[in-house]
Each structure stands twice: as structure tokens, then as C-alpha cells.
Amino acid sequence: MGLEPFETIVDAHHGEIYRYLLRMTARPSDADDLAQETFLRAYRAYRTLTPDANVRAWLFAIATNLARNHFRAERRRRAAHAGLHRAARAVDGAAPDGEALADEARARLDALVAALPLRQRAAFVLRKVHDLDYDTIGRSLGCSAETARAHVFQAVRKLRRGLAGLERPSQEPAP
């Protein structure tokens, strides 16, 4: 069995690659540019793939590499952070009372994730948002499944520390 037509690949994966890059870059215009570049590169190399290749992991790998190159320009990275903090403040001010805690947590998570080293950020987003298994994350990041899990482990440790104070009151111990 040969490779599927490339249009099928775009239909199946463009949405999630865009969402992934949006979470990685925090800017719709950057996510748009990088998602386009991801699929243009994939198009050029698609015919060299073996029919049993993990296309999803391959696309995430291209997207992650592009995001890494994107953030090598430190000025852009700082600008992205500034945008995130502004967004976080806007959410703080606008949220209705009932959802204030979740919204604040989400906004704070945005900022905390953006501050993670790139590989930890990528591994965390791939695991927690896109539900990839560690083997696939490893393929996407160019490392082993164990290393991928270690990246998520480090990310979770840092994030839970960063979210301190937002936890719901814990259950009282039984008398």
C-alpha cells in the first residue's frame, strides 16, 4: 500500500499542527506562518517517506524544529512573552466570578508554559494537549521515549510549583 494523497494528510493534521504551534508560540500569526512552513516542507519530503512511517510524529517533528528556529531569535521570544502577559492580565480583569479560578489558572498556565525550555514545553503540550504517547513524542523531539517522559516530568514539576495558591481547598482529614 502506498502513501495517502498529501491533501488527506493536510485535512487530517492541519488543525492540530496549527493548535500545537499556537500553544508553542502564543501568536496566531506565528502559528499560521509556521504551520504553512511545516506543510510546505512536508510536501517536499512526503514522497521519500516509507508507507509505514508515523506521519503524525513526523509532522510534529517538523513543526517543533521550526518553532525552535523561530525562538532562536530571542527578541521575538520576549515579544511573545509580553503578549502572553498582556493576555493573562486581560483574562484576569474580564473573567466572571464563577470561572475566575479556572481562567486565572489557564492564563497563568499559558505564561508558565511559555517560560519552559522549548523541549519541555513541546513534550508537555504534545502529551497533555495532543495526547501523544511517549514513543511518538520521542520521535517528534528526536529523543527516546524515556527522555520524552523526563521532559514532561520536569515540566509538570515546574508548572505545579508555579500554580501554587490556585489549588482548591483539600479535603479535611477524617476525625
Binding site: 479556572a102 499559558d110 509538570v156 510549583r161 501554587a164 490556585l166 482548591r168 483539600s170
Partner: peptide, 22 residues
Amino acid sequence: RDEHARLRALETAVGAWRRLEP
């Protein structure tokens, strides 16, 4: 218990984050 609560807070935040659609 606090550690558990912190992890649950993280999960709640991740849940809200996952639902955030462009």
C-alpha cells in the same frame, strides 16, 4: 494532600487550556 491538590490544580488548568480553541 497539598501536593495532590497542586497536581489537581494543574490538571484543572490543563483541562481549561485544552478546551481553549482558536
